[in-house]
Structures are given as structure tokens and as C-alpha cells.
Amino acid sequence: MAVIEAREMTKTYGRGRASSRRSWGQPARRGGDWVSVVGPSGSGKSTLMNLLGLLDRPTSGSYVLDGRDVSRLKGGELAAARRDLIGFVFQSYNLLPRQSAQGNVELPMVYAGVRGKERRRRAREALERVGLANRAGHNPTELSGGQKQRVAVARALVNEPALLLADEPTGNLDTASGESILDLFEELNAGGVTLMVVTHDEGVARRAGRIVEIRDGRVFSDERSDGAGA
């Protein structure tokens, strides 16, 4: 089943325009796809990610996420869709600075209404999955960039979303830490997590099985990558 089906979706800012006016013939499938979104800066890839991640509303068009039409959702339903269907990994981590790694990972579950004991257990498991079980009690200020991004990945995964959206996840990291995050993505992808990674770094893009290129606010090309899974 397709995770993302976006048709004629546009976003207009003021007088300018960034849009993805093409329907995707081969949408990402649940349980395995890793799609990279590439393009020069200002091409609209972040806008695309914000629209697909329900952080922003499209001006027009339809968007079906994991089989649900989410383009007309409002308020609480929209928040619930973000909570249950999407996990975010940001370039600047966006961890709450005064909460421990454990607390940050628990946060999406608080909003999902997961009870205390199970919440703590699942947060520990998620931290274990990203290799940070021994850093659960640390505050973000006490973690390296790579570790912070791992906490962010654990937080994104903890509600088992249909889609993990990452916006320049290695943008703030040194090469080694960036590589280890990409290795983690590969592991997660192999374990069935659907990934969409926005990047302007070719090396990062080529780790995906499929590369979508955005130019001037439109989908320019969409092709299988030879580096799929490797």
C-alpha cells in the first residue's frame, strides 16, 4: 500500500510559489521504501517535507497518507495524524533542552496517551534501538550532535509511524556522525521503516533506493537509485 499519495498539491507563499504539481505514479510503499528528496536550496524541498509532514497546509490538491485523506484535516485530527502517522527528524534536532533523552522520547507517547509504565518501557526500547540505552538520563546539552540526532530518531520512531521524515538529518553533523546516522537509517529501513530524507548532499541521497529531484518548486525527476540499500 502506498504511504504517500499527493496529487496536484500546491503551496503558494505571498506572490511567490512553491509547488509539487505532479502526482506521483510510484508513491512510497509502507514497509520498506527509502526515498531521498534532493534539489538546490530554494527549490522547495523543505516546503514539500513540511506539507507531507502535516506541519503546513497545502494551498490546493489532495494528500492521502497511509490510506487516509489528510488534506482536509483540522485541529485535533491533524495533531493526531502527525502523532500517529509521522515521525520527524530535524536538522537542528529540536529536542526539548531541559528534558532528559528519556523524557524527550516519551513526549510523543504522552500526547498519544500511553500510560506511564508502558511509556517508559517503550522509550527505553527506542533508545536501545538507536544505541543510546546508557544515555537515557542525560540532557541534550550533555550529548554530542550525533547522539542528539539519535535521540531525535528514537523519538520519531517511538509511536511507530507510517513514515519517518528527516530534513537534512546529517546537516549539522561531522562526517563520521553523519555516516552513523545513515547506517542507523539503513538498519531501520531494513527493519521495515519507511523513510523520506530531504537533503542537498548527493552522498546522503544516494543511500536511498529512490531519488526524487525537486527543481523550481516541482518534481523534476523520480528514479531508482543504483545505490539502493547498499
Binding site: 485535533g76 495533531a79 493526531a80 502523532r83 529540536n94 513526549l107 498519544a112
Partner: peptide
């Protein structure tokens, strides 16, 4: 913004 991205409603 972070809280909302993680699924908090306006009411939350």
C-alpha cells in the same frame, strides 16, 4: 512548534 510536530493539539 516541536510539541505540535510530535502530536500535541492546540488544547494540549
Amino acid at each position: 512548534g516541536v510539541r505540535k510536530a510530535l502530536g500535541a493539539t492546540n488544547t494540549d
